[in-house]
């Protein structure tokens, strides 16, 4: 496979959320992300989070508009990770880590890095909160969020009445909101938003 084809394949995998393609990208690019993160005091776990954040950022961007690659996809992707990691370190300590902004600046006119990073942080925070719910609550909320009709929800969740479904949904949603409020990222996001206002 030629480099150009591979770049295109990976961009498409992110756009469409193709699991097979994303798995290939993960296998290919993780060693580089781990090296980057470990060099600056992080762990493999951080690298995995960074991979997810970077994919989400790209996914969100690609839902809005096209990206024209002016470098290889992997260079571009690593640049996103580097940028995210630098911001993470900046927030964690007063140590200012300087990364080369060469690649980042190549895409500045196409990406609002700050906005996309914030979006990604929000989504992952919500998802994390969802994963803390019990299976029953999570399934129920997912069905509601996906706008599955009430009758179908009752049947699928084996609930006896419409009223029970309604009450249980609010109970689960309130639990979810409780988890969100407790998440450290929530505080960070709220502070950022207040600063912007």
């Amino acid at each position: 496979m030629q480099q150009g084809d591979r770049d295109y394949e990976w961009l498409e995998a992110v756009r469409s959320g193709d699991k097979k393609g994303l798995t290939r990208l993960y296998q290919y690019i993780m060693p580089s992300i781990v090296k980057l993160v470990v060099r600056y005091g992080g762990t493999e776990e951080h690298a995995r989070d960074l991979f997810q954040d970077a994919i989400l950022i790209l996914y969100k961007k690609l839902q809005q508009s096209e990206i024209t690659l002016t470098s290889s996809f992997s260079t571009f992707f690593i640049a996103i990770c580097r940028n995210l990691w630098a911001n993470h370190l900046k927030k964690k300590s007063n140590n200012h880590v300087t990364f080369s902004d060469e690649v980042k600046s190549m895409y500045d006119d196409q990406l609002d890095w700050h906005e996309l990073e914030e979006k990604s942080l929000q989504v992952r925070m919500l998802y994390k909160a969802m994963s803390k719910l019990g299976d029953d609550c999570r399934q129920l909320l997912e069905l509601f969020f996906l706008k599955v009709p009430m009758d179908e929800i009752m049947a699928r969740m084996k609930y006896g009445s419409y009223e029970y479904v309604r009450r249980r949904k609010f109970m689960c949603k309130n639990k979810l909101i409780e988890f969100i409020k407790k998440d450290p990222s929530y505080k960070e996001l709220t502070e950022n938003q207040n600063k912007e206002l």
């Binding site: 959320g17 997810q52 989400l56 992952r124 998802y127 706008k147």
Partner: peptide, 15 residues
């Protein structure tokens, strides 16, 4: 954010 089915699937897959 959680009403986006494609995004929800993406997050599950990424995990």
């Amino acid at each position: 954010e959680l009403g986006d089915e494609k995004q929800l699937k993406l997050l599950n897959d990424l995990n």
